[in-house]
């Protein structure tokens, strides 16, 4: 199916006929989707519907994939891994807490740009400093990752993704395990990434965040896309009730529209 897309927006990443399997069992059954530039696209859907597999396919972490994933007209699936990593960054859900300093972690965001003689250059260090300043972690750059709180570790990983300096940023449930303040901080940063012109794609579970932050929402169920539109349209749709078996309810305050969920 052709996903809904706001008129006049360039699709930075477009996915056509995407099938993905793990060990012979197919998870995605032909996904067609467009992810517009300078926008936050949120993928929602019940557990096991193929949200993470969709993101993982875009960074070529699913062994059996067919179909087409284009970034700005270039085929992402046939690109050299290093070149692909210069265009798409991915923040996985489960991450190690490596026994290294914050700045070393962020420096590894520059790994896709390493060339002979395999040493990081001055501009890589410059990018590390800028990224750390952007997430407000510059003071802790020499601290060990293990000594940071969960929120700070997430910021460090986000700085690594920023240092990667890609056109698209993929985040798999970036707010999981964060306290409420850090969740809001994380989403505000995602917003500013989109304002900087990046294509931001993320998986979220919280409908209120979806309503507040998503420019474009893709609803998935059983490896297929049920609906793709703006947040309010998707959250008010019959499809979302069918997919989750819940009923989103809405109320308005002076801040705008809010959403909570009833069984």
């Amino acid at each position: 199916m052709a996903p809904a897309q706001e008129k006049g927006e360039a699709a930075m990443i477009s996915v056509r006929g995407l099938h993905a399997s793990y060990g012979g069992s197919e998870i995605l059954h032909g996904i067609d989707a467009d992810f517009p530039e300078g926008r936050i696209t949120v993928i929602i859907g019940p557990n096991g519907c193929g949200k993470s597999t969709t993101l993982r396919s875009m960074v070529r972490m699913v062994p059996e994939v067919s179909g087409q994933i284009m970034i700005d007209g270039a085929d992402l699936l046939s690109m050299e891994p290093q070149k692909a990593a210069q265009r798409v960054a991915y923040l996985p859900q489960n991450r190690n807490v490596p026994d290294i300093t914050v700045e070393r972690l962020v420096l590894h965001g520059r790994f896709p740009y390493l060339s002979y003689p395999r040493r990081y250059r001055r501009e890589d260090w410059d990018m590390v400093t800028r990224s750390l300043q952007q997430v407000g972690l510059d003071d802790l750059r020499s601290s060990r990752m293990e000594s940071l709180s969960g929120g700070q570790q997430q910021k460090a990983y986000l700085a690594m993704v920023l240092a990667q300096d890609t056109e698209a940023v993929l985040m798999d449930e970036p707010t999981t395990f964060l306290d409420i303040k850090n969740q809001l901080d994380m989403m505000d940063r995602a917003r500013s990434l989109a304002e900087d012109g990046k294509t931001v794609i993320m998986i979220l579970h919280d409908f209120e965040s979806v309503l507040h932050y998503a420019d474009h929402v893709i609803l998935m169920k059983d490896g297929r896309i049920l609906l793709a539109s703006d947040a309010e349209t998707v959250l008010r749709s019959q499809e979302i009730r069918d997919a989750f078996g819940v009923r989103p309810c809405f109320y308005e305050t002076e801040d705008g529209l809010h959403c909570y969920v009833k069984k």
Partner: peptide, 23 residues
Amino acid sequence: CTLTNELDVMSLGDDTANALGLR
């Protein structure tokens, strides 16, 4: 000694290392 960055990137976990372009 020439592959120490690769070693460190690998220790970030398979997903992160993959996403950074390491085979």
